[in-house]
Write a protein that binds this DNA or RNA. Structure first.
Lengths: 231, 231
DNA sequence: TTTTTCCATATTGGATCCAATCTTGAGAAC
DNA sequence: GTTCTCAAGATTGGATCCAATATGGAAAAA
């Protein structure tokens, strides 16, 4: 009857936490989106386990989740790799963003308070002040903040996943000054329409904004085709 | 407590390893959609491992994937359960289906051959002949066959996931004769518009068809609120 | 009787171990 | 010199083992 009190193993490993997988997934996701893990780069389980000071097991589960998000490619008995960039996927994802985000905006506007619009506008202020660094993150935050009041968790999660994928392409392009400038102007116009509660105009502006961003990114990608295929 | 010694699997199971997880995920997904595993039902790892004659490990990965599809709820240290049915989710998913499927149809029509329309029509013939049994599966097949030519794998996968979730609710309702009848009529009208390559009408019909199906299901669900919360 | 405490048990989370498969490169055959 | 074969190493897939946490119920206290 050895009573093993919790005080026993307070020695070395702080590894008492519950959900390792969630943290790992988030970290890997961030590194893939930022380009720190480059498109096509192989993801060896043992290596990642070492890097995150854990075992292969939670890594494996995290890779499964990231695969279902389209950020990782898994080939049986061959291993995992960061999903390559693919112009066709870029087009597709931006089409889907238009569909999903215009739906979200339509459902948001009836619920939209001035306070919420102010919040989005302050984020836009920061985005314009920030320059290239953090453009992706603040751009994303602007969109998601705007749609938050619609109260549709599943739709919002879907949009977040689409933006994750889209931001991988944005990394190659956010340096383009003219692209950022136009994006900022379009955000301001969108906010103005929201203040007037002019749903038709707002939805139209948002749809064009996203679609044109996608086309611009596509042009950049095809000019410098670093698809990261690794071959 | 099945003691599976190493000697066991040398003889009986040719357990040639491949991707066990994919098969398990598919099987569990099917059982959840069909209602064989009921909403709210707890999913014990050991039990599932026994049932599928495998170990807990691939089960765990499969549950992760199903969670990201919204079919399973995972609570740390508590376990997995079939996701409960939720009228709010039903509404949301059908809104998303309208957005995603009308997009798919718009992109399909320019690519649509008569052979492809014939194929969808034959599926519709079978659906009308089949009656209640298999309504869900054939209904789904009709939709996915129609959109297949659009050549957008990511969009199609997204739609498939939405239909997975939607079909869970359909299980409670497919018995309603009037619902099926109207669905069949609307499918025929949609096919006619596709044959004329009348995109505007086809998209409009499809949007209404999905939206009204969602509303009907919502009414049924609220009349007999078997949300399967399990409490 | 009711409530609280605490321990035994069930179950999940993570680590390690073994088997299956893929990859690579040295050596043989042509 | 080139190509084929096959064996050793690398890497993933699956099974088992141990640790951590949650759950349920008996015993103790009120």
């Amino acid at each position: 009857m050895t009573v093993q009190g919790p005080a026993d193993r307070a020695s070395a490993t702080p590894r008492r936490s519950g959900d390792q997988v969630a943290a790992l997934t988030a970290e890997l996701r961030a590194q893939i989106i930022s380009g720190e893990l480059r498109p096509g780069e192989p993801l060896r389980q043992e290596l990642l386990a070492d890097r995150f000071a854990t075992s292969r097991m939670p890594i494996r589960e995290a890779l499964r989740v990231l695969e279902s998000e389209g950020l990782v490619v898994l080939v049986p008995h061959k291993g995992a790799a960061v999903a390559p960039l693919d112009p066709a996927e870029l087009k597709e994802v931006y089409e889907m963003r238009v569909a999903a985000e215009t739906l979200a905006l339509r459902r948001t506007i009836p619920e939209l308070s001035n306070a919420q619009i102010d919040r989005a506008e302050r984020i836009q202020d920061r985005a314009e002040a920030a320059g290239m660094a953090g453009f992706g993150a603040l751009n994303r935050l602007f969109h998601t903040t705007l749609y938050a009041p619609c109260g549709r968790p599943r739709l919002l999660a879907h949009i977040a996943g689409l933006i994750d994928v889209a931001d991988r392409y944005l990394t190659f392009t956010a340096g383009a000054l003219d692209y950022r400038d136009r994006s900022h102007r379009e955000h301001r116009a969108l906010l103005a329409a929201c203040r007037r509660r002019d749903e038709a105009t707002a939805v139209d502006l948002l749809g064009r904004h996203i679609a044109e961003a996608g086309e611009t990114l596509l042009r950049y990608l095809q000019e410098s085709p670093r698809t990261g295929r690794g071959d």
